[in-house]
Design a protein around this nucleic acid. Structure first.
Length: 467
RNA sequence: GCCCCCAUCGUCCAGCGGCCUAGGACGCCUGCCUUUCACGCAGGUAACACGGGUUCGAAUCCCGUUGGGGGUGCCA
């Protein structure tokens, strides 16, 4: 039988990397088994029903190349099925009405000397439905629910630990637990692959499944959570987790996907950076880890850099243009000042050095700016300018020679080295700092030859004046 | 509190009873290359949480301890 899996996010704003990882693993499983992926939006809660939230899920998935075969389906549109299921459960005696609030339940528990929680207070009250009534599922008093999790192995839950949970809110809307069971059954889901934070809800869904007599249950696989540096579950409030924001900063979708695939799973041959087609081929659910994984941006940077370096030069230019022009990044110059020809010339060198597309900005500002700023407190300035040998003389001499030196990259480079030789000092770094503002950067003389002689000489003089 | 899950270098992954004096990658350090920086190359640093079993043999299996995490909603 063909596999059918689903990615079923609640539309709670932007898609975060943890959800993206869940989507990816579902997708990898579907593609590697020749099965199908279904996108289902879990919007049973009215507050979540906002069109812009749907976009926030669909768009990033598309960008990452995670395509689905069916959907998006909306649980809100299948509400009637869920309502029917709740009704069926009430009629069969599996569920009952209850008009107690959470506070009521806690108070009753305290008075009875029981642990906090709902202890089936209204089970046999015979209460009829009413405006303030929820429907609760009658969990078995004993026995256990056993899950054979594909990642975790056998997991057991004692039924007495499960309180009579709410399956229909007082506003009449069924909760996701019912929707889950009904929809997974209707949609023929064979494998439920999702985050470990949902593991505890699984026994409840299985109980509903049996009570509703829905037939064969899907297999479950609970993925390890993605965590932050403090080893806490990635949170939208606290952590940088917006997938789109990463992409906006200049992480390539392919690199992001590659990195995400490496969190909780690894290829048997230890080759980490590789095409998605190979990852699909190698991916096996049974090889997924159990331990949570830290979402390490440092490693992402490395992977991204590797992918960027593999890009054809024209493609790199095309992708970085929005950043260079200040559309997708903050820059200190005007888009009109960007010299496209000059950028095209240096782009391959920039490409060798960046971790993200937006980093490109840092390497080319000196080409578009009239003057550069010097950080005289910085380490490079201190080391190469303040403490460097004969730096004032070097800059003075360069200023002089640059007045009539042939204005080509080779000639400039030769002239600079000659000055260094004459003074018995290292001249390249001081020249670089004076002209570009920093010690780190692309090979520069060919680019400098495209700047105005006067602009370059002025910078030499400006840096000299600060010594 | 109660329930559930987890535990190999700082981080991610490999290891599924002998091939492990534990391998790869990121990071970090050193050297080479070099007009700087980066890339690349060559090295180095660094881990089986602890205690009991089982076994001829355990990072690998079992139990416990400790530590971490998740859940405990009329959110999903």
């Amino acid at each position: 039988m063909s596999t059918r899996v689903r990615f079923a996010p609640a539309p709670t704003g932007f898609l975060h990397v943890g959800s993206a990882r869940s989507a990816l693993f579902n997708w990898l499983f579907a593609r590697s088994t020749g099965g199908e992926l279904i996108l289902r939006i879990e919007d049973t809660d009215a507050a979540l029903r906002k069109p812009e939230f749907i976009d926030a899920i669909v768009k990033p998935l598309q960008t990452l190349g995670i395509d689905w075969d069916e959907g998006p389906y909306y649980q809100s549109q299948r509400k009637q099925f869920h309502v029917d299921a709740v009704e069926q459960l009430v009629e069969s005696g599996h569920a009952y009405y209850c008009n107690l609030t959470r506070q009521d339940a806690d108070r009753l528990a305290e008075e009875a000397g029981l642990p906090a929680g709902y202890h089936g207070w209204s089970r046999d009250s015979g209460l009829p439905d009413g405006p303030d009534c929820v429907v609760r599922f009658r969990t078995p008093d004993d026995g256990e629910v056993v899950i054979e999790d594909l990642v975790r192995g056998t997991v057991r839950f004692g039924c007495k630990e499960l309180e009579d949970f709410v399956i229909r809110r007082s506003d009449g809307s069924p909760t996701f637990l019912v929707a889950n069971a009904v929809d997974d059954a209707d949609m023929g889901i064979t494998h439920v692959i999702r985050g470990e934070d949902l593991l505890n809800t699984t026994p409840k869904v299985m109980l509903l499944w049996d009570a509703l007599d829905l037939g064969d249950k899907p297999e479950y696989a609970h993925l390890p959570l993605l965590v932050n540096e403090q080893r806490k579950k990635l949170s939208k409030r606290r952590d940088d987790v917006s997938l789109m924001e990463f992409l906006a900063k200049g992480y390539l979708p392919e690199a992001m996907v590659n990195h995400l695939a490496l969190l909780g799973w690894g290829p048997p041959d230890d080759v980490e950076i590789r095409p998605i087609t190979e990852i699909i081929e190698l991916f096996e659910l049974r090889n997924v880890n159990k331990g949570s994984a830290y979402f390490d941006v440092t490693k992402l940077n490395h992977i991204n850099g590797e992918y960027i370096r593999e890009l054809p030069a024209e493609r790199f230019i095309e992708l970085t243009e929005p950043f260079i022009h200040g559309v997708d990044a903050d820059v200190g110059w005007d888009s009109a000042d960007v010299r496209a020809d000059l950028y095209a010339l240096v782009a391959p060198e920039v490409q060798q050095r960046v971790a993200t597309l937006s980093d490109s900005v840092d390497f080319v500002g000196w080409l578009f700016l009239d003057s550069v700023e010097y950080d005289t407190e910085s380490k490079p300035w201190n080391k190469s300018m303040r403490k460097g040998k004969a730096v004032p003389e070097i800059l003075d001499l360069l200023h002089e020679r640059f007045a009539d030196v042939e204005w080509t990259g080779d000639a400039l480079n030769t002239a600079v080295s000659a000055v260094g030789d004459e003074l018995g000092a290292r001249s390249q770094v001081p020249a670089r700092i004076a002209i570009t503002g920093t010690n780190a950067g692309i090979p520069m003389w060919d680019a400098v030859a495209h700047l105005d002689r006067s602009v370059v000489r002025r910078r030499l003089a400006a840096a000299r004046a600060l010594l």
